[in-house]
């Protein structure tokens, strides 16, 4: 029984990392994903802020979910999420001033990040505290991982660095397009394609085996 429980917990955690990855699979939360990933560090900070909001609102909502009348469900969720987002925003401004200046209005925009409200609707409102936390953690990590990946690729080609470490030599001419919106769209488009391609290959192998 215990091992079964563990296995299901692991499943809740891992599905956000790959199979149900919020960005690649569900195609949610696009606006922060594309906007703040000009450098890997900004992607990482945004990922952390979103994960914080996701985990804390899942915790609160899974605790009080039975008390909330269904008619005002969405309104309550939104208020709770907005509260945590404001906390995250002030925390960043107080302790990581330069980063918060770079992220600008995209921190408050976490309020309308569909991943967070989507998870509360689809998962947290139907499950208990422990499962909801694992789900939130998995989704948060999956989201952050994609942000860091996209940020690294764009920073590498756009500025020749990753996390400000010089990777490409002096002779490298920065591809300005990677830092521009167009570069964000195209890179993410190909990454989604790559994700689907790997999944298709995996499925074929499983079928043939």
């Amino acid at each position: 029984m215990d091992s079964l429980k563990c296995a299901s917990c692991g499943k809740e955690l891992c599905k956000g990392l790959w199979r149900e990855n919020p960005i690649f699979f569900q195609v949610l939360g696009m606006c922060p994903t594309l906007a703040v990933t000009t450098k890997a560090l900004f992607g990482f900070s945004m990922g952390m802020a979103t994960t914080f909001v996701l985990i804390s609102s899942s915790l609160v909502i899974s605790c009080i979910r039975k008390l909330i009348p269904p008619q005002v469900r969405i309104a309550t969720f939104t208020v709770i999420i907005a509260t945590f987002v404001t906390c995250a925003d002030y925390f960043l401004k107080a302790n990581f001033y330069t980063i918060s200046k770079e992220l600008g209005p995209y921190v408050p925009l976490i309020v309308v990040n569909c991943i967070i409200l989507g998870r509360q609707e689809a998962f947290v409102s139907k499950h208990g505290v422990a499962k909801s936390l694992l789900d939130a953690l998995g989704m948060g990590i999956g989201f952050s991982a994609v942000l860091v990946l996209l940020g690294s690729i764009r920073e590498l080609f756009g500025f020749g660095t990753i996390f400000y470490y010089k990777i490409l030599g002096e002779g490298f001419e920065n591809w300005v397009i990677m830092a521009l919106p167009a570069g964000a769209f195209i890179t993410l488009g190909f990454l989604v394609g790559l994700f689907n391609w790997i999944n298709i290959r995996l499925r074929q192998r499983r079928n043939s085996a």
Partner: peptide, 8 residues
């Protein structure tokens, strides 16, 4: 403070 296009 500035929010100009990154890279340009």
């Amino acid at each position: 403070e500035s929010q100009e296009t990154p890279g340009l």
